[in-house]
Design a protein around this nucleic acid. Structure first.
Lengths: 219, 219
DNA sequence: CCCGCAGTCAACCTTTTGGTTGATCCCGTC
DNA sequence: GACGGGATCAACCAAAAGGTTGACTGCGGG
């Protein structure tokens, strides 16, 4: 039957070379095109569509040094008409990454340290319209539906962001026009929800869970 | 002959495949062996030594999911007798990573998003006993020797990293086996050099200037 | 051989944070 | 119309962090 044609999206030439070598080594899988960021991926898809054939699956990295990130690109791709399934292939398996990817409409979530055979299975599965999840991704989603979970309120997230810029309680208070007492109250709530007991740990935890962006944005 | 024989050390099969494909595609470079972490790399070196030939260069990732990390492995390799040069190939270019690598005795520091040709040059250079540095790494080291006073010392960077994980002064003190008083002294120096006056601002500043990786950036 | 600097530590004091209790207000929902 | 949660604030105390001064060590360069 037909070959499964893959669009590779990753900003590292080394990783693209690895995936190319690995995937083309499998029977029934070929590389349709490659892109180094989300924007380029969309261009490639437009080009391929014009040439008559969408790829059967997009293999997408989440962390892109510059340009459009993987989550945004995935969401954009889902809007296309012959929308190819997007299989996320990334380095990290944090809650926020997994959740963001699934929310964006990814068909799967695999890790770069997965053995080649698992990767092959995942690509074929996604191309066939199925789902492929790394063990931890699957576990997280199961846990999520059984456990709604305590999440931060928008206000708390806002204060957390200011916190991460290095502002004192007083400075934060002035910034958002509330009293220092209120800032402290919010922080106590935040610490409780994040399971920490000081501001630096809160920043670390919130950054890790991608609740806030790292201070001094980078890919 | 004159082939440059490389030992690949990276925990990701995909990346190893990429490097293998890329490097073997170059004339004069071949893969002697591969390892998925520092410990395995040392085993491979012992095995290769027994078989009569150390590799001409070790291409080492810094962030290893599990097992011995790249810095430790690099330091260990330097203790060997026919010690092959170690070329670091990693994702991040923060001061902390660069300094740690250089201190451990690395012969070069390259980033994974480097174009293939640059990578080839770096491998050949390292194998020939030379040095290969990514622009930012080179700039950092130049800056260090021209104005040592204004930049952070390795010790200060180390404490900064612990700070960013959310540890208290006491916890940091215990972690590095010094007194809390000393931690405070270091922090005061750090604040002065970064132009801030509290720990969260220090984390923000240090992250922004890429002195440390963002809190929670996992290996 | 001396100097400077990184690194170590102590004592002391001020400011900031962390943690608690309790209260008011508003806005949805049951 | 009662209930609960989010947001707001105050007062208070304990703990941690910030800042200063001063001192000792070890090491490399002039």
């Amino acid at each position: 039957m037909g070959e499964v044609r893959v669009l590779l999206v990753d900003d590292h030439p080394v990783v693209r070379a690895g995936l190319r070598a690995m995937l083309t080594g499998f029977d029934g899988i070929s590389i349709a095109a490659e892109a180094s960021d989300g924007r380029a991926a969309l261009h490639e898809l437009a080009r391929l569509a014009a040439l008559g054939g969408m790829p059967d699956v997009v293999l997408m990295d989440l962390q892109m040094g510059e340009g459009m990130d993987g989550v945004t690109a995935t969401a954009e791709i889902r809007k296309l008409h012959p929308a190819p399934p997007v299989l996320i292939l990334t380095t990290y398996d944090t809650d926020a990454d997994i959740l963001a990817a699934v929310e964006a409409g990814a068909s799967g979530y695999m890790l770069k340290d997965a053995p080649p055979e698992q990767l092959r299975q995942a690509v074929l599965q996604a191309a066939a319209g199925g789902t492929a999840l790394a063990p931890r991704a699957a576990a997280l989603l199961m846990d999520r539906i059984s456990n709604p979970g305590t999440s931060l309120t928008p206000r708390e997230v806002q204060l957390l962001e200011l916190l991460a810029t290095g502002l004192s309680n007083r400075a934060i208070a002035r910034q958002v026009f509330i009293s220092e007492a209120t800032v402290k109250t919010h922080l106590v709530h935040i610490y409780g929800k994040l399971g920490v007991d000081n501001r630096t740990a809160a920043i670390a935890a919130a950054t890790q869970r991608r609740i806030i962006r790292p201070p001094g944005a980078r890919g």
